[in-house]
């Protein structure tokens, strides 16, 4: 009993002041993921990596848009999105004050426009992603001719690329040789 009283006296006030004063959190605390939409190329790396499916990406071909979304109510705050993002567009912040009365307030979205395919004109990939990759090609391509070829590739939709590849293969000498040998 004496030991207990001594311990209680020694301890004194143990309680934090929160919410009347801010509470201290660790430097790299994993709180609310903050999305900088301006920095996002809508590449979907985060939505693939998210173990809880809190991040989503929906394409509306008719409107020519792709909508990125985060549901803070489903988020497990693991930080995988931050880890895989190629443009540092999402980062976990120390903010933990997320409680809401209206469930819809837990969702944040960002709408991105799709770029049209240079071959068929149908929207296929986010405009910002195409622009970003094009800029990378310009920075890394060994020659101007090569850069031009790759720029074309990036701006072409997968369906057109496939059709193009098939045309090339059908026209190639190897295939013709194979066909005659058969």
């Amino acid at each position: 009993m004496f030991k207990l009283l001594k311990e209680v006296l020694r301890t004194g006030e143990a309680t934090v002041k929160y919410p009347f004063a801010p509470v201290e959190v660790a430097k790299d605390f994993r709180g609310k993921p903050e999305h900088q939409a301006a920095n996002c190329i809508a590449c979907a790396a985060c939505t693939v990596a998210c173990p809880a499916n809190a991040l989503g990406m929906e394409t509306d071909a008719g409107a020519g848009t792709r909508t990125w979304s985060i549901n803070y109510g489903r988020c497990v705050f693991c930080g995988r999105c931050e880890e895989v993002c190629p443009t540092d567009a999402i980062r976990l912040t120390p903010d933990f004050e997320l409680a809401v009365a209206v469930k819809a307030d837990l969702v944040r979205t960002a709408v991105f426009r799709l770029a049209p395919c240079v071959a068929c004109g149908k929207p296929f990939a986010p405009e910002k992603e195409v622009a970003y990759v094009t800029a990378l090609i310009e920075a890394t391509a060994p020659s101007e001719a090569d850069a031009e070829r790759r720029r074309q590739l990036v701006a072409t939709c997968p369906a057109c690329k496939r059709a193009h590849d098939l045309g090339q293969i059908a026209g190639s000498r190897v295939v013709r040789a194979m066909e005659t040998s058969r």
Partner: peptide, 10 residues
Amino acid sequence: QKLKAETHVQ
């Protein structure tokens, strides 16, 4: 509550 639904449009 602090959080509000928000939509960013490119």
